[in-house]
Design a protein around this nucleic acid. Structure first.
Lengths: 255, 255
DNA sequence: CTGGTATATCTGGTATACTAGTTACCAAGA
DNA sequence: TCTTGGTAACTAGTATACCAGATATACCAG
């Protein structure tokens, strides 16, 4: 039987215990509404469905998703950190323009990272991993043959993710993904290059050849050559879409 | 004079126009309460003031900052994306444990990126930039002489930021900063190595020597050697603080 | 002493409201 | 026709409330 004092005070319990397993880094953590909104906006921004400068009205997006502003705001804040959205306090939220400098930076970072990863892959990949890589290249080819750019992009990502896997540092694919986002956006601003998908398949095959030969240096060189092809005509894109970019460097330095 | 109908309907205005200047990427954008809370938590987590597993009670943090849950939640969500905090839905939010695999990944990424950046710096740095680098090394030395680890860490970061600046790709310092966060956290778990600060100063000087000599390859090798020293005794840290880590790889692979 | 159950107290995720800052727009005056 | 000031309609940032899920704890039967 409690005293009057005990009866009046709600019982206080200890804080919950910390997780001890793999935690949130396990696969299959549940997705929130904010996650779904983020993914949709991320996709639309990256694929130029929402071009730079487009206002993102939180209340409108909320209405579209039958949601409140809170998860929309949470999604938008993530996109801000990824430089995909820019917020002008009290004025509005807009699809971010692409800072010109970010493109060569992304290319330099990718080249440095992926040369290293592919060299490591050439040294340490297992037979099973090599076979898996070849299977992905076949997927590349199928998508190229079918002329499906979107499908092709997915298989292209699978290729580079597999290289990270084979290097022994699979987590670095997440770093590369983040780095390459401006490049993905930019690619939609450039004219499609005839037969480029098939050229990529050829370059992927050359990389796989070098890996299978255990030739780390050649694998690195092939990867570097492959990535250097991505240096699309940014000057042309800037000329055609001047409002899509922030000119934060001398454009003539892009050559 | 409006008709009755016009009078009843509130006037609808156009959406605000998109920004056209440098936008949010200019310096000096104003700081929100969420920003301040994020910075404090980021600092406390990185510096092990809040060790892995510590519960982060949104309502308590809100009370500490005399704020509501909203900006706390926004700050926490940023930390989640940076893998500094893990959320168990409806149960609690905790300072994230360090996935073991992230440490060698961070080292590999830093080595790949900073070898490349320092080689470029050796090739293209201006005289002014080289002098500035020397000045930073003197700051390194002063902090080492004074035995001030925290101050030394700041000057160490300044050194690496300056290398990115000199390479012509200053934005990559942000990428490196993000990559190195797990390393920063981990360093607080390892025993201080006698005279390590002065050793770092020496290694920084060697890097500067190579840059001044215009020797890109030597600069890259010196940087790589320097970064490889950071491979602190993770096995020892794991042994001393097993609850601070998520063991997502074979620890014997850390050698 | 232990396992099962009920319950109260936590939690994160989301909805809604409020405030202060920004800006589109309009009317008046030069 | 242009300029300017006022205002209403926007906005982002933050506060507060609610709900459903998770869990610590008390209690009881075996």
């Amino acid at each position: 039987m409690m005293s009057e004092q005990e009866k009046q005070a709600p019982r206080r319990r200890a804080a919950n215990t910390a997780p001890s397993g793999q935690g949130q880094f396990e696969s299959g953590t549940r997705q929130t509404l904010a996650d779904r909104i983020y993914e949709q906006l991320h996709h639309d921004i990256t694929n130029l469905i929402l071009p730079p400068g487009t206002p993102i009205l939180e209340r409108e997006v909320a209405s579209d998703f039958d949601a409140s502003r809170t998860p929309v705001r949470e999604a938008v804040l993530r996109l801000v950190k990824e430089m995909l959205v820019e917020v002008v306090p009290k004025s509005g939220t807009f699809v971010a323009r692409i800072p010109l400098s970010i493109l060569p930076e992304a290319l330099v970072a990718r080249r440095a990272l992926e040369r290293d990863l592919v060299a490591r892959a050439a040294t340490s990949a297992t037979a099973a991993q090599k076979l898996h890589l070849r299977a992905i290249i076949e997927d590349n080819r199928d998508a190229a043959d079918a002329g499906k750019q979107s499908e092709f992009d997915k298989t292209d990502s699978a290729f580079h993710a597999q290289i990270a896997e084979m290097s022994g540092f699979p987590g670095l694919w997440r770093v590369i993904q983040q780095i390459k986002t401006p490049m993905d956006r930019h690619r939609h601003l450039t004219l499609p290059v005839a037969n480029r998908m098939h050229q990529v398949v050829t370059e992927h095959s050359q990389i796989a050849d070098a890996i299978e030969a255990g030739d780390a240096e050649r694998a690195a060189e092939c990867m570097d050559h492959h990535l250097s092809q991505l240096k699309s005509d940014t000057l042309d894109a800037l000329e055609r879409y001047p409002n899509y970019f922030i000119v934060d460097m001398d454009p003539s330095d892009l050559k």
